[in-house]
Design a protein around this nucleic acid. Structure first.
Length: 863
RNA sequence: GCCGGGAUGGCGGAAUUGGCAGACGCGCUGGACUUAGGAUCCAGUGCCGUAAAAGGCGUGCAGGUUCAAAUCCUGUUCCCGGCACCA
């Protein structure tokens, strides 16, 4: 039997997020220009960007948190009168689509576009204000055409090249990976899957050309987290040193180049160590079956250690080749060894071994009885504290009978004509000497490698190159772009790129001679797509160029994107590739900025029950469910409230309930008081008289201005949205307290103050809870668009306290508090503190040593 | 091993510059309203102590500087992240 469940009043007061959010969702759907950036504007520009997602199927809480931060900022900037660019797109090429094609028999394109539609709907329901007219979908030809265009430009300038080399291969992805995509020896997508090494012909982008600049410019990015800059510095891994050519004493006298940062110790070199994969190792092994066997063993050991992640502390092993090398500095013959701790892919793959001054060499020499010859006498001028000395291994004072070892700087000994120089001087002079004599030079080595972008996969941008028997490797002419990715391709993970099995794609004509030719069937790494997508947003529908330089110039300015927000997991991969791409685009005259991003913010992870959310742990919280149960505003606001945005956030369901309660409190407060607005409008009185308010009203006014200040300061400064939301809560608590249990406006509060309070409360809420804010804005009778309403200004005078509470300490312990008027003299405050009854009881009969007033508290010292 | 970040009530977290430790929220306890409450409102809530006070103790641990330390210094433990025979 249907009957009235609630009374009329209680129904009015209850906040129903589904109903309110549904209403505004409908309205916002109908206005596609709502969040559109203006192409021309007299306003200052602001480009705020969140990292574009991979359309995996549905948003997770990490996305919600990321976008809630960006959206709050965008709304704040809109309200501050900026021309805001706030776009969104899809990083939509990639392997999951192919896996879905295999397991669910859905073509990758269909699967991807369906996911995009779903996630876009989720974003809209969450109320994120994106300019969808600029949406970028990287798997569509109008976008990837420009990947191909860029590839041709890179190729023209020698920055894209093909070479056969040892590359990382993930068996699960069935494709090659870039160095940046190998994490601890495993695939970045399959953290339990060890990467294999394969010899393959691959396309590379010459990122090393910009190694120096990529490193140097990190110092010009004060708006980036130090952590990210450090990670990139380590990744680029610049190391200054010298290259010196030793020469084999036999086997044709071949050159062995070694790289060292300590050329000053070269007179202490007692062996040369080669990587097992080194060309000379291989050559010597070819002529010596016993050596061959042992070298193979070393290679296997290295591979195994790499797999188990123990490459860092593998037990050092080596084998003496029986050959000798000549040290060009002193013509000494020293043995040539092959060792498992020498890496082929760093430096030259060969070192000079100086056991007296390098820990690894020391360990190796001790094991195999190789001579340890001291050539540096450490300067002991500054004696470290005994405690420090004991803990500092690099000191290791040489005891009688102990082998000499130190990594400290000092003066050269036993070093021929260089004896007596300091290490620093010696490094300079000896490098110059080597160069002059033609057997070496000062050089710089980077850890950074060129970016291998070939992928033996289907769902990616086809590389626009053709192989002709007559003309060799031929680029596709620009006018023939895009090379379309064929549809209806059978996808398997075995047998190389699926495109190899599509004859109508693979077989083509040579652009040069017109003869039969074969297309490149590898596709590009998807990190190519995300390296420049944010430029495309500025001019998303350009079909003559990736974007118009002038338009991109307007949005990027001199320093790039004003604020970029995303997860720290992209600190190296995406963010280093993007910087490379920007520098290349600058060099071909497309843009003027040197760096893509001026300010970067890396938000923390969303965790639950102490662990990262994952399906296997069963602790995943679905945004859809949160929206359905608590509303989008609550989900967004909670993700900003539960922790500062740069820290990990522990998702607690009772926490979001608390936010929902708070939003209800705001809703009820404004609904029951909204009518003052209409009354005021009718009476024609609006201006608020600041002076002579009764104390109760003055307290509210003061709190209002303090709250505006706190929220504004947080947007300007450190983005601790948790504390500024707390400030709004405090304010609302005070409004409730003023109402009393009667839940009626206090007669002490004038209507115009109440109106002012409500209006500003809604404005403050707008960046965090846009649905509720819009609803209340309308309820207050406002006709203007809240999105472009002016952000409230605070009046520092009105925010000031009318009386100050001063804590009083005696001998460092809080004993009392006194209340004084602002502006009371220091002397009067001290007197009042001394006169305080409680304080008296603590100081009676004691001698006052001193009294300190800090502006905030009084501290009395007695004896 | 190296480089970052962190450790504060039962929980998430505040305290921006050395100046009242624990804002705000959750949870818990009690009360009001109610046929009812998983709605709403009000109050209390670091620990020890007390009838209540007074008082004492308290920011991972041990010292130090200072009238005053979560904050600065020295040493140390544990946790998280990154890098790691990088020559």
């Amino acid at each position: 039997m249907p009957h009235e469940e609630t009374t009329a009043t209680s129904r009015d007061e209850r906040y129903n997020p589904q109903q309110v959010e549904g209403k505004w969702f409908q309205r916002w759907q109908q206005d596609s220009t709502l969040y559109a950036a203006e192409p021309h504007s007299t306003k200052p520009k602001y480009y705020v960007l969140e990292m574009l997602p991979y359309p995996s199927g549905a948003l997770h809480m990490g996305h919600v948190r990321n976008y809630a931060i960006g959206d709050a900022l965008a709304r704040y900037m809109w309200m501050n009168g900026y021309n805001v660019l706030h776009p969104m797109g899809w990083d939509s090429f990639g392997l999951p689509a192919e896996n879905a094609a295999i397991s669910a028999k859905v073509p990758p394109r269909e699967w991807t576009l369906r996911n995009i539609a779903n996630m876009k709907a989720q974003m809209k329901r969450l109320g994120f204000g994106y300019d969808w007219s600029r949406e970028v979908t990287t798997c569509l030809p109008d976008y990837y055409k420009w990947n191909q265009w860029f590839f041709l430009k890179l190729f023209e300038r020698g920055l894209a090249y093909r070479k056969k080399s040892r590359v990382n291969w993930c068996p699960k992805c069935a494709t090659v990976l870039a160095n940046e995509q190998v994490v601890g020896g495993c695939c970045w997508r399959h953290e339990d899957t060890l990467v294999e090494q394969r010899e393959l012909e691959q396309w590379f982008l010459r990122t090393t050309k910009y190694a120096d600049e990529l490193l140097r410019d990190l110092d010009r990015l004060p708006g980036w987290p130090e952590k990210v800059r450090t990670m990139q510095r380590n990744w680029v891994g610049r190391s200054e040193g010298a290259q010196v050519d030793f020469r084999l004493d036999s086997a044709g006298g071949e050159k062995i180049s070694v790289f060292t940062t300590r050329v000053d110790t070269i007179f202490g070199a007692t062996s040369v160590q080669l990587a097992p994969q080194h060309a000379i190792t291989q050559k010597l092994a070819a002529a010596d079956s016993d050596l061959h066997k042992k070298v193979d063993q070393l290679i296997a050991e290295q591979a195994k250690a790499r797999e188990t992640g123990d490459i860092g502390n593998i037990e050092k092993h080596g084998v003496n080749t029986g050959h000798f090398a000549v040290n060009p500095f002193n013509s000494e013959k020293i043995p040539v060894w092959v060792a498992n701790y020498i890496l082929m892919d760093y430096g030259t793959g060969a070192i000079m071994s100086v056991p007296a001054h390098d820990e690894r060499d020391y360990e190796f020499a001790k094991k195999y009885g190789i001579e340890i010859r001291q050539v540096i006498e450490p300067s002991v001028a500054r004696a470290p504290s005994p405690a420090k000395e004991a803990s500092d291994k690099s000191v290791r004072p040489t005891q009688p009978g102990e082998l000499p070892f130190t990594t400290l700087d000092g003066k050269l000994i036993n070093s021929g004509e260089f004896t007596g120089l300091t290490c620093e001087e010696a490094i300079k002079k000896m490098s110059a000497f080597a160069e002059q004599k033609g057997f070496g030079k000062a050089t710089v080595t980077f850890r950074l490698k060129d970016w291998g972008i070939s992928r033996q996969r289907y769902w990616g941008t086809p590389i626009p190159m053709v192989y002709c028997e007559k003309d060799g490797v031929v680029p596709v002419p620009e006018k023939d772009l895009p090379i379309l990715l064929p549809e209806n391709v059978e996808i398997t993970l075995a047998g190389g790129s699926p495109l190899q099995r599509v004859p109508e794609f693979m077989n083509t004509k040579c652009p040069k001679c017109g003869g039969p030719a074969r297309r490149e069937t590898d596709t590009m790494d998807t990190f190519v797509d995300s390296s420049w997508y944010f430029y495309r947003y500025t001019d998303a529908h350009n079909d003559r160029a990736p974007f118009d330089s002038k338009i991109a110039g307007y949005w990027f300015g001199e320093k790039g994107i004003d604020q970029y927000i995303g997860g720290v997991e992209h600190a190296i991969l995406h963010l280093i590739y993007s910087r490379f791409w920007t520098k290349f685009m600058r060099d071909i005259g497309l843009i003027k900025n040197d760096e893509p991003v001026e300010r970067l913010f890396t938000q923390g992870m969303v965790i639950k029950d102490g662990a990262k959310m994952s399906k296997s742990l069963g602790n995943v919280v679905s945004p859809d469910e949160m929206v359905a149960r608590f509303g989008a505003d609550a989900a967004r606001m909670y993700s900003l409230f539960a922790a500062p945005p740069d820290r990990d956030l522990d998702w607690q369901e009772t926490g979001i309930e608390g936010i929902q309660r708070f939003l209800g409190r705001v809703y009820r407060f404004v609904s029951r008081n909204a009518s003052v607005e209409t009354q005021l409008a009718a009476s024609g009185s609006q201006t608020l008289q600041a002076t002579s308010l009764p104390p109760e009203a003055r307290a509210i006014q003061r709190k209002l201005h303090q709250t505006i200040k706190r929220v504004t300061d947080d947007f300007q400064g450190r983005w601790h949205f948790n504390t500024c939301i707390a400030a709004i809560m405090e304010f609302v608590n005070e409004l409730y307290a003023a109402e009393g249990v009667a839940r009626a406006p206090s007669p002490a509060i004038p209507a115009n103050l109440l109106a002012d309070v409500q209006r500003n409360l809604v404005l403050l809420l707008a960046p965090f809870a846009p649905y509720l804010a819009h609803e209340l804005w309308e309820m207050l009778g406002e006709r203007s668009n809240l999105l472009k309403a002016s952000w409230p200004k605070y009046d520092a005078e009105l925010a000031k306290e009318d009386e100050l509470e001063i804590p009083v300490q005696v001998n460092g312990k809080l004993r009392s508090k006194i209340v004084v008027a602002p502006g009371t003299s220091e002397e009067d405050i001290k007197q009042k503190a001394l006169a305080d009854e409680k304080i008296q009881s603590y100081i009676a009969g004691k001698q006052i040593v001193k009294i300190i007033f800090t502006g905030k508290l009084v501290s009395i010292v007695v004896r």
